[in-house]
Amino acid sequence: MSDLGPRYPTEKPVQPYIQYSYGGYLYGKYNSLFCAGCGYGIIGHLFTRMFEDEKLDPKLYPLIIGVGCYTQIVTLAHYKAQKITTLHGRAPAVATGVKMANPNLKPIVFTGDGDCLGIGGNHFIHICRRNVDCTILIFNNSIYGMTGGQSAPTTLYGAKSTTTPYKVFEERSDAVKLALAAGATYIARTTVAHPRTFLKYFKKALNHKGTSVIEVITPCLTYFGSKNLDNLGAENLGLPGNKMDTGGKMIEWIKRNTIRKNQAKFMDDNELLNRYVIGEFRYDTSKPEYSEVYAKIQKVAMGDD
């Protein structure tokens, strides 16, 4: 085997993004359980990067993780982060309990599209309504990846999945619109194809007092990409469809399929069908945070007021 040369490149890569490796901070030491082409590796890395760069105290930022492929992020996210794996859809409820029992903590909730908008939709609405101080990251791959590619509430119109072999004919639910209606105070959407924007929004969310919701569009190559063509979302433009068989093609599709919020203002519903509008949708610091309000109630009850 010696004639093949060293197994790993000895030279330091020159790309600016990976000048400083965060690999050593990953819990799993480079071991990823995700499929090739999955976006969760990027998210795990970005989370670790933020955790390390901002020197977040792991005792103050518990990680509350729902059920989906991203649950395996426990093996990728920063090894120091304290994690709670919860039941399917119940992560926002657990976050409410953690925050109210110890108001010094600021939970970071990892949840998915099926987890947060399907089974746990009710808890998501009510954590936004209460404005509990926490950061909710919704990873939207528009499919139920862990169970084998069933359709999700966010599956795009006309897409195929294992439970919709004749294509989806339902309207998809929109996490951002739901959060806007429910009353979350910081709402943004980005994709894994825009990592620097993600870091910017994530940092803003961590410094925001109140419920912050960031929807992250991420690719599922194994179950979504393999079943659908990359003209999905642009059928009305008459583009020919190509197979999405590599991670790169899916990232390209996501990039092509996203529209900045400012551009979307000038587009009608037909043009926005199956597109992802990215940007910041609300940043409201005027609304009080729930545990602070409750502390006031406790003061009144104790008779200190």
């Binding site: 509350i64 709670i84 919860t86 039941l87 119940r90 409820a93 657990v94 976050a95 409410t96 309990g97 953690v98 109210m100 029992a101 009710n122 808890h123 609405i125 009510h126 409750y294 109630i297 406790q298 009144v300 009850a301 104790m302």
Partner: peptide
Amino acid sequence: PEVGGTCLQMEDELASINAVMGASL
């Protein structure tokens, strides 16, 4: 609230038991 504790009326039973679990943790 008189004793510095928290009493939450959650949105359903699922949320209440999960909040209890989180608080206990």
